[in-house]
Amino acid sequence: MSGIICYENVDICYNGSPVIKKVSFSAEKGEILGIAGESGSGKSTLIKAAIGLLGKNGSVTGGKIWYEEKNLLDLNEKELRKICGSEIGMIFQNAGSSFCPIRTVGDQLLEEMKEHRKIKKAEFEDEAAEMLAKFGFQDPKRILKSYPFELSGGMQQRVGVAAAMLLKPKILLADEPTSALDVSIQKQVVEQMKMIREQYGTTILIVTHNIGVIRAMADSMLVLKDGKMEEYGKTQEVLSHPQSDYTKRLLAAIPVLRR
């Protein structure tokens, strides 16, 4: 199995109880992989394991996670910190909760960039404004001067995606980035993430329970149930000809509008 990121027989436990069991998949440069399944299936746990975000109670107990021929699980905290953000970015389900409410958006994004490169404030403001403009903000300089609570939920989410892309990482991990948004804003975020892939060749792993999002943007998809792989393959093939009974039930549960 090859790719810019590759999971090889990964097992994950919380407090000694297994939650991910022998999961293997890979994603190539510029590929979008959708990870689907019901709540509690282990989707978010799977991507958080790559950058050490399982918390004190979680641990990878088996397998390997390869990134450009390095096993991420073998890296120490300092080595992993160097990669996180600059090479592997993360978008959280509720971007607003990842911002400090009493500091401006610009101050927080500048701090993030200074962790990985030397940059003057004026240079940062130009780069940040340019990135925010790519995500549809007409007045990016005002956004940088704003506090998170002054932005709507949709704006916070778009800022979160832009923040993750400031350092132009090779891989973007997206944990339910559209779940808290209304349909029109969901469409904007999906289009912006596709734009990221086209402009930067970014590999994207997106966790979602929304099959419509996967259908709209993912090249391939992985279906999880109780921490086990139920289905894995090209998106259109999986959606058109599901092999697993669970996947069939999952697809059958999608609401259909009728006259």
Rank of each mutant, 00 (worst) to 15 (best):
D74T: 08
I88F: 03
I91C: 08
R117T: 13
L109P: 07
A133S: 15
K82E: 15
L72E: 08
D126P: 06
H116Q: 10
Q93F: 05
E125D: 14
H116I: 14
T104W: 01
I102D: 05
E127V: 11
L80I: 01
K120N: 14
K70H: 02
G96K: 10
I119H: 07
M90G: 02
G85I: 08
R103H: 13
C100T: 11
Q93K: 04
S86I: 04
P101W: 00
I119S: 08
T104V: 03
L109F: 06
E130C: 09
D74V: 00
M113Y: 04
K114V: 12
D107L: 07
N94I: 10
S98I: 06
E125R: 15
K82S: 15
G85M: 10
F99D: 07
A129W: 12
A133E: 15
F124T: 10
F124D: 10
E77C: 09
E115G: 10
L73M: 10
A128E: 04
G106A: 00
E125V: 12
E130K: 12
A95V: 07
H116K: 10
E127Y: 06
T104E: 01
G106F: 00
I91D: 09
F124P: 12
E130M: 11
R81V: 00
E127I: 14
E79Q: 08
S97I: 07
M90Y: 11
T104M: 03
L132Y: 03
A128P: 03
M113E: 10
Q108E: 05
F92S: 08
M90K: 02
T104Q: 03
K120S: 15
D74K: 09
K118H: 10
E127R: 15
L109C: 11
G85L: 08
G96Y: 05
K82P: 02
K70N: 04
